[in-house]
Simulated scan of single mutants.
Amino acid sequence: MVRQIMISLATLMIISSCKAQNTDSNDIKKNKNMERTTERFDTSTYYMERQGHEYQFEHYLRGKVRQFGGDNGSNYIEYAKKEKDLFGTYKEYYNKTGTLKLVGKYYYNDFDCGIWKEYDEKGYLIDEYDQDAPYKNYPWEKVEKFVKEELKLDLFDKKVFIHRYVDEETKTPIWDIHHQVGLIVYSIEINANTGKIIKQEEGEIEK
């Protein structure tokens, strides 16, 4: 009887040990599969090279880079975009550790786009969100085609502005296009759910 009890206890201990090992193994596997960034802000170059409160330079891959922040405990910010690209990259770094906090794309004129990722101070991914999700029925590609082919406008023209937002009351995603010809400003709003123009206005700029 005593021998049977001892055998049972030994068996339970072996099973428990195996479960613990499996749990530890799963945790390690899970951690290895977690996305992690090791990217850090180059604070030494930044403080040595910056003029006033910002540092600007040309990078052969990223184009024109503008960095600022870090004063009074604020995070470091970086914008980078090639001259002939409509879209650039935004990055934000933690002030204390210099590790990457936030990264995503932006349209050079006025809106964030694509997949944005947020990391904790140890570099682990904690959030990921798609800025384009509300506009999937009428995405950027259709807006670009409309502006180029229908309006005959140059997207690099400084007098052409494209903005987008979700109406707070109706929850409708809206593309807002403005362009100026002489002293006249033309405004077009497109419902991103239907692709239909819902507003079209023009007004003269006050002298």
Rank of each mutant, 00 (worst) to 15 (best):
E58Q: 04
S44C: 07
V65C: 14
I5T: 03
E39W: 10
Q131I: 06
E149L: 05
N137Y: 13
K32C: 06
I197K: 03
N22Q: 12
Q67F: 03
V185M: 01
R164G: 00
G70Y: 10
E141Y: 06
L153S: 02
D167C: 14
Q4E: 11
I126K: 07
K30C: 15
L183P: 02
W140Y: 12
K82I: 14
T11R: 09
N26C: 11
T23E: 06
T89S: 07
E202G: 00
E35C: 11
F146W: 00
I177Y: 01
K171L: 12
D127F: 06
D176P: 02
F87D: 09
S25I: 09
K81T: 08
Y90L: 15
A133R: 14
E149A: 10
V65N: 10
K158M: 12
V2G: 07
K142L: 06
K96W: 11
L12I: 12
E150D: 03
N22A: 12
F156H: 14
D130V: 00
K158R: 06
E149P: 08
E92Q: 13
A192F: 00
I184H: 09
D120E: 03
E144C: 07
I14M: 02
E149S: 15
Q51T: 04
Y186F: 09
K199V: 03
A10M: 12
K152L: 06
G98T: 01
H53K: 04
K196A: 04
E118I: 03
S17Y: 13
F156A: 09
K136G: 13
G52Q: 06
T43R: 07
G88A: 02
K30V: 09
L125G: 04
G195Y: 01
F87P: 04
G114Y: 00
H163I: 05
V160Y: 04
K105I: 09
F156Y: 10
G182E: 02
S8C: 05
K207R: 15
Y186C: 03
Y135L: 02
T89M: 09
K152N: 08
Y107H: 09
A133I: 15
E150T: 11
S44Y: 15
K91T: 12
I184L: 08
I15N: 05
T99H: 15
I77K: 11
M48E: 10
L153M: 01
D85A: 10
K84T: 13
N75A: 13
